[in-house]
């Protein structure tokens, strides 16, 4: 357990000292959300209606940027092989790295989302729900995304490939995330079911996705 937290701490420290990755993800999120109203026209009613969907989709795109780097640096400098031979099973390594990714990407993007909501005229009562669903949904994005990061380690054009591989797998998270926010906005009473399913997807992916990622990593290290 100590080794596990050590690894999480190391990844957080690396992300903090490097700084670039978080900034790029936040900047990309900001740019995408700014571009969309420019393309759609400045109709505030339209924007506030589609704001939950736009914020979620842009969040997924911004997360995709950093998923490719999840294992890549450790693979390139050999520390992944050291981790594979160390006391932690690779499954736990995958959990630690996904957790660190969530803390350094999922949470900053979630915190940023309400600010961008202002740009899209998102109704004020939706902010709490939006942040809540994103907090509940982004673990699924990081943990499922780790599978993609592990699969594309030695692929050519890995960055483009990871988008093609991961976006279909993010459909349930996206669907229920948007469903929960929209239901809360319209007050149709559909919020709780959608939110609970979103939590279930996150919890299931926290348990299952590292297994798949670890299998992929073992093949990559052979």
């Amino acid at each position: 357990m100590k080794a596990f937290w050590h690894l999480v701490g190391r990844d957080l420290l690396l992300a903090w000292r490097e700084g670039g990755a978080i900034g790029v993800a936040l900047g990309f999120y900001l740019v995408v959300v700014t571009m969309l109203p420019l393309g759609l026209g400045p109709d505030l009613n339209l924007l506030s209606r589609i704001a939950p969907g736009l914020l979620w989709v842009a969040l997924l795109l911004a997360t995709l940027l950093s998923l490719g780097r999840l294992f890549e640096m450790d693979f390139e400098d050999g520390s992944l092989e050291v981790l594979a031979t160390g006391p932690l099973p690779l499954e736990a390594v995958a959990v630690a790295k996904s957790l660190a990714h969530w803390l350094t990407t999922g949470i900053p993007l979630t915190v940023m989302a309400p600010v961008l909501g202002l740009l899209l005229n998102l109704p004020l009562e939706a902010y709490g729900v939006l942040v809540g669903t994103m907090l509940a949904g982004t673990p699924a994005v990081s943990f499922i995304g780790a599978i993609g990061g592990a699969l594309t380690l030695r692929a050519r054009r890995g960055g483009v490939l990871i988008a093609l591989l991961m976006l279909p797998l993010f459909v349930p998270t996206l669907q229920f995330g948007i469903e929960a926010v929209s239901a809360a906005l319209t007050g149709s009473g559909g919020f709780m079911p959608a939110f609970l399913i979103l939590v279930a997807i996150s919890l299931a992916s926290v348990v299952l996705a590292p297994l798949a990622a670890a299998v992929a990593l073992r093949f990559q290290l052979q």
């Binding site: 050519r156 591989l165 093949f219 990559q220």
Partner: peptide, 23 residues
Amino acid sequence: ALRSSVEDEALAANLTAVLGIVG
């Protein structure tokens, strides 16, 4: 796409299989 972008055929087979089961 995953199969075609990994050069080593045995590795590509294994990785594609992982993705197939995840799917």
